[in-house]
């Protein structure tokens, strides 16, 4: 871990965007309908843009001359700070949508709070990002409502996806020393405030979608400190293949 909690924080925000963008981008040309194919590609593009802002800031703070690209393509799995949720595999469309919704519903209040950060750079990145993410949330919320409250088959698939992914949501709202250090400075919100908002939002959204979040599940932790599920290794291997095969390659 970096001694500077702000670097860790920027890496976490940036890696969430990067890994989710890589996953979502993989649907390009494969989504079940063309509108959703285009929507996912646009979401991926926004997230890549946000990745550049966060990782660019992390690299500047670190002061070793590493660019956002260097951080994306030249770190190994254990150095990634994304949450476990975003690295869960695409498997099928229902899971990809549920993963997106569970993340967007956290990302939006988080960025909204960060627009008031005492750290001016964090505030401006959040201000830029939150507008894009409001469109992501609108879409994912709409889709999980329609599919959850849809046909018996679509309902069953969405419920199964929720059962599988819910255990990865706790990590986003469990503070550690990095979160506490930023919250103490007013640079980031208290995660308990985000959790309260998330819980209330989920209660109404899931009810409307006729879905039920599993109770008494063990909430998995680790992504924020670099302890990932095995899924991330495969993803990073694919994402970084070009740089590993041809080190230093440029477009």
């Amino acid at each position: 871990m970096n001694d500077n909690p702000t670097i860790e924080f920027a890496l976490r925000m940036g890696d969430n965007c990067l890994i989710l963008a890589q996953q979502v981008g993989a649907w390009c040309g494969h989504a079940p309908v063309v509108e959703e194919d285009i929507a996912f590609a646009n979401v991926a593009l926004d997230l890549i843009g946000q990745t550049k802002l966060w990782l660019g800031y992390a690299g500047e703070l670190e002061g070793k001359g590493r660019s956002a690209d260097d951080l994306a393509f030249l770190r190994d799995v254990r150095q990634f700070r994304n949450c476990l949720l975003v690295e869960q595999p695409n498997d099928e469309f229902a899971k990809a949508l549920m993963r997106q919704f569970l993340f967007d519903a956290w990302h939006h209040p988080m960025l909204t709070a960060l627009t008031k950060s005492s750290n001016a750079r964090i505030a401006e990145i959040a201000e830029k990002s939150v507008k894009e993410v409001s469109y992501h949330l609108e879409r994912s919320h709409d889709l999980i409502t329609r599919l959850g409250d849809g046909s018996p088959e679509s309902h069953a698939k969405m419920q199964e996806a929720l059962n599988d992914l819910w255990r990865f949501t706790g990590e986003l709202m469990t503070p550690d020393s990095v979160d506490e250090a930023l919250a103490a400075d007013g640079a980031a919100p208290e995660l308990s405030d985000i959790q309260a908002e998330y819980t209330a939002y989920m209660r109404s959204a899931l009810e409307e979608a006729t879905l039920v979040a599993p109770e008494k599940v063990h909430m998995y932790q680790g992504g924020k400190t670099g302890v990932h599920t095995e899924k991330l290794g495969h993803l990073v291997a694919e994402m970084q293949w070009m740089q590993r095969a041809y080190p230093g390659l440029k477009w």
Binding site: E35, I38, A39, L45, E132
Partner: peptide, 13 residues
């Protein structure tokens, strides 16, 4: 509205 997303990030269909 057909989709909130379109041919470029700034457009809906």
């Amino acid at each position: 509205r057909v989709s909130q997303f379109g041919s470029t990030p700034c457009k809906a269909s």
